[in-house]
Write a protein that binds this DNA or RNA. Sequence first.
DNA 1: TTGATACCGCTCGGGACTGAGCGATGTTGA
DNA 2: TCAACATCGCTCAGTCCCGAGCGGTATCAA
Lengths: 119, 119
Amino acid sequence: MTSKRTKLQEDTHFRVLRLLQKNPEMSQRELAETVGVSVGGIHYVLNALIDKGLVKLGNFTAAEDKRRYAYVLTPKGIAQKSALTRAFLVRKMEEYKALKEEIEALQVELDANASQKLS
Amino acid sequence: MTSKRTKLQEDTHFRVLRLLQKNPEMSQRELAETVGVSVGGIHYVLNALIDKGLVKLGNFTAAEDKRRYAYVLTPKGIAQKSALTRAFLVRKMEEYKALKEEIEALQVELDANASQKLS
DNA sequence: TTGATACCGCTCGGGACTGAGCGATGTTGA
DNA sequence: TCAACATCGCTCAGTCCCGAGCGGTATCAA
């Protein structure tokens, strides 16, 4: 089994890929906010994505904010994103189930504790 | 708002505290397996917990495995665990909701994509 | 008794990520 | 026009944690 760390990273990569496919003009700060990692972290994964050839920096045509980039998915990036989708969904559904069980166990425990204090 | 990192850490601390309260004789490997972090990671959080005075190393009375420790919650540890319970539950329920929404969005997207390919 | 095997706590190099903040560019109001 | 402020991509020291593996201890078959 691949490590927990690797999976978390895969999740983040997938989310960034998904977001950028919809809107390549998102800023690093917007991406960070949406996927739930730090700005530095987004920069870090963006670098990894560019390094792997999944994303490339696009230029704005004219009269644009010189500070900004567009982060455009390459064909390879699009393929990778599609390939990751199923695995991501399966994983999330497992997490969903585990989370549900943990919440229920905790609620039972809290109830038991409360009634114990009452008696 | 406290950082994502801090919260994850708080979750792990809570889970370890909870587990040890039920069974102080769990080994680091068992804890790691149950909580879902690495062995080195458990050692790391155990150190943090001991450092904060929430857990102390208990000795086995007699005729015990010399390799092992018991990780016993101090009164402070018990208090801390109780204090963390509510926040943990609330957080998990939020995560549950977010996860549900993300899964649904992804499923809709997959369906749309499938029917698009058929047409 | 002695090897093989399994599990113990613990260590450590290094990768992933944070959070504060830099210099540059864009925007706004006096 | 120009200071004040917002936001851009990017950097970096520091933290968290992984994963492989160490030496020691227990268990058991030969």
